[in-house]
């Protein structure tokens, strides 16, 4: 794994909207099979970074390579091996869960689609909901449907933007469990933007902290806790957000 080429590589990535630098020359590479948390306050550049990785936004400068393909120029070489989930992007509400999964399964070219829909529905506890309109479901159920769409093609690269936002703690914990299962089973590479530090501590091997479009820190959760002399990632996040960076190292 250590010698494998990165599943995802970002070099000097920059996005400028008129005069605002949303992302400012960031670099990172993700190893295949890793889960990386992308942290930062509102406006830190997380969503823009993910959008550039997906080819949804064209970088001002710098490069993104996903599974060897240069984004966005070569995106159709790899989009079928990626997927994305966010509570801020909905599924068509009038379509049933099964219809939505069928449409997206066809778009992604999933073989044996009916079998796959049954499998993913069983894994995400959606079997009883398959023939109900998506719009009639609760927030937690809709999140599971969005996750089913994001996993329908068994993506090698999974991008998640606050996947458990607005979920109750029990449902959020359940969703995290399913994400762990998926990563374990398919060795998928996951990039997770989140404001939930408990979630990041539980799921992520590595944490990239962004502030004003730049990477402020990049290490494993354990290393970050030691580096900042803190007990929780939330405290580390606050240190970075309020400019109290590297407290422990400075003290030493």
């Amino acid at each position: 794994m250590a010698n494998s080429p990165p599943a995802l590589e970002v070099q000097r990535l920059t996005k400028v909207y008129k005069t605002a630098r949303a992302v400012d020359g960031i670099d990172f590479a993700l190893s295949p099979g890793s889960i990386t948390g992308l942290l930062g306050g509102n406006g830190a550049g997380k969503t823009t970074t993910i959008a550039m990785i997906m080819g949804l936004v064209t970088p001002t400068s710098g490069s993104v390579r996903v599974l060897g393909a240069e984004m966005p120029r070569q995106r159709y070489r790899v989009l079928h091996r990626m997927n994305f989930e966010s509570p801020y992007v909905d599924m068509p509400m009038r379509l049933t869960v099964r219809q939505n999964l069928k449409v997206f399964g066809m778009i992604y070219g999933v073989p044996d689609l009916n079998e796959r829909i049954g499998e993913i529905a069983a894994q995400l506890d959606l079997v009883d909901l398959l023939d109900r309109p998506t719009g009639k479901l609760s927030a937690g159920q809709k999140t599971r449907v969005s996750l089913a769409k994001a996993l329908i093609n068994r993506p090698d690269i999974l991008l998640l933007d606050e996947p458990t936002a607005s979920l109750d703690p029990d449902t959020a914990d359940w969703v995290r469990g399913r994400l762990e299962d998926y990563r374990r089973e398919y060795s998928a590479t996951v990039l997770l933007a989140s404001h939930n530090m408990v979630e990041v501590e539980r799921l992520c091997d590595r944490v990239i902290i962004m502030k004003r479009g730049r990477i402020e820190d990049d290490a494993s959760p354990a290393v970050l806790l030691t580096r900042y002399g803190r007990h929780t990632l939330e405290e580390v996040f606050l240190d970075v957000a309020r400019g109290r960076a590297h407290v422990q190292e400075a003290a030493q």
């Binding site: 949804l56 159709y76 992007v89 909905d90 599924m91 068509p92 997206f104």
Partner: peptide, 14 residues
């Protein structure tokens, strides 16, 4: 209206 454009634009649909 369905806020589904994001799903389509990051899919292999050309």
């Amino acid at each position: 209206w369905a806020r589904n454009m994001g799903n389509l634009m990051i899919s292999p649909l050309r």
